[in-house]
Simulated scan of single mutants.
Amino acid sequence: MASIRVQEAPFDPAEIAGALTAGRTDIGAVVTFTGLCRDEGGELAALELEHYPGMAEEEIARIVAEAERRWPLQGVSVVHRHGLIRPGEVIVAVVTASAHRQAAFEAASFLMDYLKTSAPFWKKEHRADGSSDGWVAAKASDDEAAERWRY
């Protein structure tokens, strides 16, 4: 059972994990990853995230289905924000649940590597001095991390 949301409004990752596990006795492990906006040493005022509505959810659903094929998961929730996000605010939460910890850890890592490298989101940095660095390019280190899942 998977839940995928792309939204502008802030959310509480603990509530997402709680909803995934409520009343469940078949789950032995839950891994929750929460990604936050950093201030980059005081230089970043905000990140602006854009996406294609509908397409982003479909692509995330596709990779969640891949995670469910690879690991024995009892549940997955992915929530990703768009819009203007300030330092300290949550950007993304990935919650995976399984009978055993290894599957939950690996699936969460797989999903985050995908979200960092291939999900259809575009980020623009707004600097504290009022300037903008424009759209953020993909990082080679993120691509290298995602490469371990290809086979």
Rank of each mutant, 00 (worst) to 15 (best):
G35S: 04
E40S: 15
R24W: 00
R70G: 03
L73M: 09
L49Y: 14
V64A: 12
H82A: 15
G42C: 10
D39T: 08
E59P: 05
F33C: 04
R69L: 03
A67E: 02
A61Q: 09
H80V: 04
H82I: 15
P72L: 07
L44K: 09
G83K: 04
M55N: 14
I27V: 15
W71G: 01
V76A: 07
R38S: 15
E57V: 05
L73D: 00
E68M: 00
E59N: 13
A45H: 00
T25R: 10
R86T: 13
G41L: 05
I85P: 13
F33T: 03
E58I: 02
P72H: 12
I85E: 05
M55S: 15
V79Y: 00
A45S: 11
T25W: 00
P53R: 07
F33W: 07
G83V: 01
R81F: 10
G35Y: 04
A67S: 13
M55R: 15
I27E: 01
E40C: 10
G75M: 01
T34E: 09
I63C: 08
A67W: 03
R70E: 06
G54S: 08
Q74H: 12
G41R: 02
W71R: 13
A65C: 06
T34G: 12
V79I: 10
T32E: 13
R69F: 03
R69E: 07
V76M: 05
T32L: 07
G28Q: 02
A67G: 11
L36Y: 01
C37T: 13
I60F: 03
E48H: 13
I27F: 00
H82E: 08
W71N: 12
D26N: 09
A45Q: 02
P87D: 12
I63T: 13
L47Y: 07
G75R: 06
W71L: 09
E58Q: 13
T32W: 06
